[in-house]
């Protein structure tokens, strides 16, 4: 079941005061997110990730297209009770203490009065802020604020949690903590939609990812599939320059350094390349499979000129 269905969502602003020019932030985005998955929304800064999230949260109004959450239009009041949202680099009311903050958000989300205080306590424990429950937020470190932020996003037990760049600006320990929290939420069966420009986070956490650049979707799919779709490659290294010509005909670009030659080839051409090296009586040094990363995919996708439209569903 799809819990988020976005179709043809567009957003453009006019910028400038006297001479208005139209700036397109999102060019007809279509996307589905399934129940219970961790969905990574990738793209460089300025790709339109935050715009998408703000449109889904009703903070901005789309110029065109539509979106549904849990089968309801996103401006339907009932949608808001089932979603949690952590904005990018949030500040919170720094005059409140951690427990006051969570209490306030629980009130606004309509958590019944009786349940509020136990739930606030539980949530503080869960994000590891029990010790500082009565400390004002102005004294919090960045990592603590981010944990408080996640706590406010899930205080009302939403079905879907939207996180905008939840790991940015955190130290490795902080990132680890946030990652663990996301995994826990996943285990509870919540759907998590998070945007990031840090690829390793997406690679370890996500069931599926979408890649966005310049307001356009460049690919969506299961992480493993996206990687395999690139085709596996191997690196072959040998001594002696005589085999270069024949290896290059197989599509491998050769790099020569002090008689040592390195070439990266499609796996299917490996046997032919080894034969070529042997025929030239060169000394084979090593053959290593190249580990494909999401980063390669990402770089490849965003490097594409924007005219070539990529099919929204790459490999499902």
């Amino acid at each position: 079941m799809n819990v988020i269905e976005i179709s043809g969502l567009r957003k453009s602003y006019s910028v400038g005061f006297f001479k208005k020019t139209e700036k397109v932030a999102l060019k007809g985005l279509s996307l589905e997110v399934r129940e219970g998955e961790v969905f990574g929304y990738l793209g460089p800064n300025g790709a339109g990730k935050t715009t998408t999230l703000k449109l889904l949260m009703g903070l901005m109004f789309p110029t065109g297209g539509s979106a549904k959450i849990l089968g309801l239009d996103i401006d339907h009041p009932r949608v808001r009770t089932s979603v949690g949202f952590l904005p990018e680099q949030p500040y919170f009311y720094d005059y409140l203490t951690a427990s006051e903050l969570l209490e306030y958000y629980a009130q606004l989300s309509g958590v019944p009065a009786k349940e509020r205080s136990p739930r606030v306590k539980k949530m503080l424990g869960r994000v590891g802020l029990s010790d500082v429950a009565n400390t004002q937020l102005r004294k919090f470190s960045k990592g603590m604020l981010q944990r408080a932020g996640i706590a406010q996003a899930i205080i009302h037990d939403p079905k879907i949690v939207f996180l905008d760049e939840p790991m940015s600006g955190l130290d490795p320990i902080g990132r680890r903590e946030v990652r663990d929290l996301i995994e826990e939420l996943h285990d509870e069966g919540k759907t998590i939609f998070f945007s990031t420009h840090i690829l390793t986070d997406a690679e370890t956490l996500c069931d599926r990812v979408a890649v966005l650049n310049k307001g356009e979707l460049r690919g969506v799919g299961v992480v493993a599939d996206l990687l395999s779709s690139r085709g596996a490659t191997v690196e072959i290294v040998w001594r002696g320059t005589s085999a270069i010509a024949s290896v290059e005909t197989l599509g491998g670009k050769c790099h020569v350094a002090a008689e040592i030659v390195r070439a990266v080839l499609e796996k299917s051409n490996l046997d032919a390349a080894i034969d070529a090296v042997r025929r030239a009586k060169a000394e084979l040094i090593s053959v290593t499979p190249v580990q494909a990363t999401l980063e390669d995919f990402f770089l490849e996708r965003i490097a594409q000129p924007s005219e070539t439209t990529v099919p929204a569903e790459l490999s499902i």
């Binding site: 009703g58 903070l59 949690g84 949202f85 919170f92 606004l108």
Partner: peptide, 8 residues
């Protein structure tokens, strides 16, 4: 943002 993304 955290207020208006709620049922407010």
């Amino acid at each position: 943002y955290t207020v208006l993304s709620r049922p407010v």
